[in-house]
Every structure is written in structure tokens, then in C-alpha cells.
Amino acid sequence: MTEFTTWDILRNLLLATRWTLLLSLVSFIGGSVVGLCLLWLRISPRAALRRLAKGYIELFQGTPLLMQLFIAFFGLGLFGIDVPAWLAAGVALVLWSAAFLAEIWRGCVEAIAKGQWEASASLGMGRLQQMRYVILPQALKIAIPPTVGFSVQVIKGTALTSIIGFVELSKAGTIVTNATFQPFTVYGLVALIYFALCWPLSKSSQILERKLNVAHRNH
């Protein structure tokens, strides 16, 4: 029987971490793009579009991410679409992140004083111009800390893709455990790697929040 050193375990886990990082990055960027479109609908002047976006957000926030992954993975396959695990994982995580990011950003946009909309409208700006030159630059500043904070949720969310068979850090943990019979060491290391990825982001989100809040601290 082969003996595995701690280094063997760690090396294999670190190799799999690349996929966790890649999937997180794709989900976060894709989620931002879809989320921005969703935000546009969510704050649209037309009630039907607002309701549509609201329904989407509530659907994705009110159901388990695991179920969304299952539907993307097992469900779509039945329609004759061959869905590999990485594709299902990517699609589900992008749609899921989009819902959360749109809701976070909506709060930031709504925190911008109404006068800013009125002032920019009185300058004859169209809605796209208002967003592009007046609202979003100001909302961006408020949005950075919670957005960085949400990236931690995305990284942790990728762990669920192991269940549909995408080989990232968590799946590698299960595979290595099955080979070494050392669940305590392996899952402990897996947890530490996730911690090393997430903690700096959590911490910088907190620090940013404190820094950017200074301007508002006048009470």
C-alpha cells in the first residue's frame, strides 16, 4: 500500500484549488455582467420589467444553490443538451451570483439622493447617460465593500459544484480522502485553503467599509 505524506495531500489539493479559483473568477465576472443587466431592469421606470427582475432575484435567493446546480446539470440533459459538469457549474453560479449582486447594487443605487437623478435629467441626460455619468460612479463607491464581501460567498459557493462532479478543491478533498483514509487531515487542509482564499477578501471588505464610511460619519 502506498503511503501518502502530508505534502502529497497538500500538493494535490493545491492543484485542484486552481479550478476553484478559475470557477470563482468566471462566476464573479459573469455574474457581474448579468447582474448589471438585471440591475438595469430592477430599477427600470417600467413596472413590468421591475417585477420581472424582482421575481428572478427572489427565485434565486429563495432556493438552494444546490438545487439550481442540479437543475442545470440533470435537468437540461433531458432536453437533449449534453451538459458537462463544468458548464452546469458555471451557468448556475453565474445566474446565482447575478441575482445577489443585482440586489446588493440596487441598494447602492437607491442610496443615491433623488436630487442627483433630477439634476441630471434637468441637464437633458438620457437614462443611460444618467447611469453612466452620474449615478453609477457614486453608487460604485458604496458598492465596493459589499461586492468584495460577496466574492467570498462565490468562492464558498463553488464548493457545492463538487456534488455534481466538478473536480475543484472540495471534490479533490473527497478523492484524496478516499485514497488516503485521512479525512481529518485532508478536510482540515481543505478548510485552511478556503480560509486562506476567503479571509483576505473578508478582511479587505471590512477595511474598505470602514474607510469609505468616514465621509458619512458625521453623527
Partner: peptide, 16 residues
């Protein structure tokens, strides 16, 4: 707060 729930669950169930 900085590790996935799935890993916490596996650590408790398989690791402990």
C-alpha cells in the same frame, strides 16, 4: 465564516 458549509459538514462527519 470563511470556509464552505459543505467542508464544515464533512470535517465534522468524516474528520472528527
Amino acid at each position: 465564516r470563511n470556509t464552505p458549509f459543505l467542508i464544515q459538514l464533512f470535517f465534522i462527519f468524516f474528520g472528527l
